[in-house]
Each structure stands twice: as C-alpha cells, then as structure tokens.
C-alpha cells in the first residue's frame, strides 16, 4: 500500500500496478447435473488508480466476482489477489482484517450502522482496527463529499443521498487499496446518483483511488475508465474510456448475442 501512496497533486497518475487480479477464478454451486457455474475460469486485472465498472445481465456473475475479489466469498477454484496477497490462502480472520485495512465498500443499501453517527460510520473500519484516523485526510474526504454539517447525525436523520455520501466517505477514509461498490446508486434518484458517481470519479482522479463498481446502469458505468462485460460467468467484452452510447450499444449487442 505504501508504494501506491497517491500523489494528490498530480492530475492523473499513470497506472503503476495491479490492485486486484483474478486468475482462472471459478465459482460453482452444486454438482453433477445440478451444477451451476457462476464464474467460469475468469482472468481479469484491475489497475491501480482506475475506475472500473463491471456490467452484465442479472445472473451473469458480476456480483459474485466482486464478492470473491473483496474477500466476502470464496472461489471453488482459481485465485484472486488484492495487491500481492492471494486471498484463497487467508484464514477467515485474516480475510476480515484485509477487508478492514485494504478494502473499502459501498453497497446499494444498508450501508450504515444505525446506532452510529455519520462520522462514527465513516471512521468505523479504523476504529475497528484500533487505529486513529488521519484527521486531515478524513476532513478532506468529508469536505469533498460535502457532509460537513451532518456529521453528528444518525443515518435515520439523513436522506438516501446523504447516507450514500457517508458510505463513500467511509470507503475513502481509510485509504484502502481498492474500493468495491455494488450498485451504489441503485436506490437513489438521478440527481443524488450522479452526485455520488461524481464523487467516485473525483476520488479516482484526485486521490488516485482504485474503484471497482458493479452496476447495470449504463449511465453509472459511463463514469468509469473501463467497463468489463460479464455473461454467464465469463468476460465477454472489455471497453476502455466508455461513453453512455457505446455502453448501450454493447449491451444491446450482448442481448442479441445470447
């Protein structure tokens, strides 16, 4: 992690390494005739300091891929790496501390602990680790997402958009090697959604944060540097610097292709 300390002054640092990697990653359920393959020998790399979107129809395995990359789920065979660490070799406890220290999460909903205030939610991974948060960094994150006056509020006192902003702040606050976002705008209206996506874009551009986002929304995916399309557990297409129309075209193409 120390080698990838983002230089926040540089507008767009060149990718210097791989933040996460899947090698012949396979995930299947059941056996014999009832065997269902969610991930079928996927090889993929996610570069540092880039914003990657994973798209695909439901059942394509995009969420499973993300869960396995993030150490929330285990593969049937193959390997996934965060940096140089092979997740399949880690114990449950080590996986937990890895998620805490090196991974950030933004989920679609239920992102926050209702009994904790906004700021407590933001610093949660660090307080779980017993570390003191880097106050100037946290301040900067909070200022960026514009939460300044809501910090002592509980989630129930925040709007959906504000809650997601807290969730993004939490993911950024511990400066993880990689942030996984699972349909982060799925529950939001268009305005709040684009706000969140802008923050994520900003985090990549200004803080050199690595983000991998699962989404089915072409608009959301268009904020990414790269879109990976998944169908039936396989990567079928890899689109660089996508715009909305290119994504929609590709989606149509995939639908027809099936």
């Amino acid at each position: 992690m120390t080698t990838t300390e983002p230089n926040t002054d540089a507008p767009m640092p060149a990718p210097v390494g791989i933040a996460a990697r899947a090698v012949r990653a396979t995930k299947s359920y059941g056996s014999g005739d009832t065997r269902v393959v969610a991930l079928d020998e996927i090889d993929a790399e996610f570069e540092q300091g880039r914003f990657t979107a994973i798209m695909g129809p439901s059942g394509s395995g995009k969420s499973t891929l993300m869960h396995c990359l993030a150490g929330l789920d285990t593969l049937t065979s193959g390997q996934v790496f965060i940096g140089d660490i092979d997740l399949s070799s880690l114990s449950e406890k080590k996986l937990t501390t890895l998620r805490r220290d090196k991974v950030g999460f933004v989920f679609q909903a239920f992102n926050l602990i209702p009994t904790l205030t906004a700021i407590e939610n933001i610093t949660l991974p660090m307080s779980l680790a017993g570390r003191k948060p880097d106050d100037s960094w946290v301040d900067r994150v909070i200022t960026t997402v514009g939460l300044g006056d809501r910090l002592t509020h509980r989630p129930s006192e925040l709007s959906g958009g504000q809650q997601q902003r807290v969730a993004v702040s939490r993911a950024l606050a511990s400066r993880p090697e990689i942030i996984f976002a699972d349909e982060p705008t799925g529950n939001l209206d268009t305005n709040s959604g684009s706000e969140i996506l802008n923050f994520m874009r900003q985090a990549v551009d200004e803080f050199a944060q690595t983000i991998v986002m699962v989404t089915h929304d072409p608009v959301a995916a268009s904020y990414a540097d790269r879109v990976v399309f998944l169908v039936d557990g396989r990567i079928v297409h890899d689109l660089a610097s996508p715009d909305r129309d290119a994504i929609i075209d590709q989606m149509k193409h995939l639908e027809v292709g099936r």
Partner: peptide, 16 residues
C-alpha cells in the same frame, strides 16, 4: 442480521 453482515464486511472480526 443486515447490520451485523455490514459490520463483518467492513472488517469487524468474529471475536469483536
């Protein structure tokens, strides 16, 4: 359940 799942996801250990 949900909340505990979230806590575990963002790094709360079983012992914690």
């Amino acid at each position: 359940t949900r909340e505990l799942g979230l806590l575990r996801a963002v790094g709360m250990t079983r012992a914690q």
